[in-house]
Amino acid sequence: MNLVVVVREVPDIQEELEVAADGKDIDRTFISFVMNEFDEQALEEALVLKEEGQADSVLVAALDGEGVDDILYTALAKGADEAVKVIHGLEPPIPTRVRAALLAAALKSIPHDLIFTGVQSAEDWDGQLAPLLGAALDYPWVEVVTAVRLEDGLAVVEKEFKGGLRAELEVRLPAVLGIQAATKPPRYAPVSRIRQLMRTATLKTVEVNEMSPAPAAKIRRLSRPVASRSAEFIEGSLDEVVEGLLSVFRNAGVLRGEG
């Protein structure tokens, strides 16, 4: 049973993100990149399955991009068996649908029984990868997966809904799973092991040809939500305070059972 974990880099949102001068993208000059946090969960889940003997190997694959080498070496340091970088020649940001097409092409030369990726990423406003990749490969897919067990030719997964309700689904392989959370928190990759792998390990590469652009909504502009530095205080009598709070909750759509 060969598991492939598709990972990607995303801008580190811990850093201040600025909108580029043309307003159509974030300013990519000074930002740094990290592994998409949900891809870390997907990798952890795959590694746990391998350690439990449910799977034989874990291969990580990523489209080439800034910071991707670091991400792949970190995945190797955590215990992935192989790392593949997909060379494509496109400039960021790459629409998620194009990512799916590039990965589907690359996966033709990568043996796989089950594909894991993160349930979502910081940049996938144009659709999540798992369903798009499933559609591109004609495999079944499940998003928001929180547990995976492998049985003969099947993955038995738990998909989580609001309030902790879960659906246990069985999925015929090969399939694509969008992982929300691994069974345990992602493990630590010791720096000395990452640095050693950077000196000794090689990243495999697969080259794919440029895909024709997919239909997409056109970006008009990016903006940063207006955030006040300090709280807006709700004042007045007890009744006024309570009404104020309720209207804040209502406007945020967190008040249930009303209307």
Partner: peptide, 15 residues
């Protein structure tokens, strides 16, 4: 659409 953990809003034109 809310992206980057809600730190950026992207406004798109529906084709």
């Amino acid at each position: 659409s809310q992206v980057y953990g809600g730190k950026v809003l992207v406004e798109v034109e529906i084709p």
